[in-house]
Design a binder for these strands. Structure first.
Lengths: 141, 141
DNA sequence: AAAAAATGTTACACTTACTGTAACAAATTA
DNA sequence: TAATTTGTTACAGTAAGTGTAACATTTTTT
């Protein structure tokens, strides 16, 4: 799954949970309301659960619930929870060698700075602000 | 080829041209000095030529030459010349629908802002500054 | 005019990554 | 104990990336 698909799917699922809180929602219910495959959702929500953004309950009457209020959840958090690789993924396998200059180091540094900018930007965007922009009502502020 | 590979390969080739200017260098010569496949180089340099960053000459005594001084070539230019797609490529095929909210528009907007930041950053970096950072001597300033 | 040399472009096989789904173990509730 | 739900793994099918070769096109030299 690409970074943007994972992020947007996660946000969509989290928005749905905020809309319906506080009762837990199963991956099946979320799937029916978002159009995202239930198995895919479980993978994403399981990562979000490890980062304490949602709470998951197995078994009958189980499902997923928000663990933090939408105003306290930021895109950067979601992004870091679901993504191990960096957004601007750097392929540097063979740009070095031959002439002895450190192109590898140069571009690693450049892309890592870009990465920092992206994360800064996302740190400033809360789930609540996304919901406000999209005019989604929320039960939890 | 990934964005970062294309960009770093292009920069490497352009640095080599700046080092050896003003005599034209063939894709074979550049390949031998950079370790980048000659056919790949011709593809990249042909794009850079369409953007007037290099000049290409076919036939005997042909090859590639810088058309601008390294201080006037910026990473953003190179990046735009070789890349039609955006760096932070957005997959939005199916994040919409079902609940009627415009997630698609939201994320397109977000990623397009990120894109602008990335390009701003690259606009500020000249080929000459890359060469200075890497301590590469240049015949053309 | 012909041969040689170089770019420009297309094509292709190979590999890698992505995608969607299914299957099933583990956990929880009734 | 049975039913339900998450968590995780696996896998087939598809798409994308990679490296290279082949050859047409252009230019220079003889």
């Amino acid at each position: 799954m690409s970074v943007s698909t994972k992020l947007s799917s996660s946000v969509k699922a989290l928005c749905f949970l905020a809309e319906c809180s506080p009762t837990p929602k199963t991956s099946k219910e979320i799937a029916e309301n978002t159009g995202i495959n239930a198995s895919k959702l479980r993978k994403l929500l399981s990562l979000l659960s490890k980062s304490k953004i949602v709470k998951s309950n197995q078994g009958t009457k189980g499902g997923f619930q928000l663990l933090k209020s939408p105003s306290k959840i930021h895109l950067q958090e979601i992004y870091c929870a679901i993504e191990d690789r960096k957004a601007f993924h750097l392929k540097v396998s063979d740009i070095n060698g031959y002439d002895g200059y450190d192109y590898l180091g140069y571009f690693e540094n450049l892309f890592s700075n870009i990465q920092i900018d992206i994360e800064d930007k996302m740190t400033k965007i809360s789930l609540l602000s996304v919901m406000n922009d999209l005019k989604i009502e929320t039960k939890i502020k």
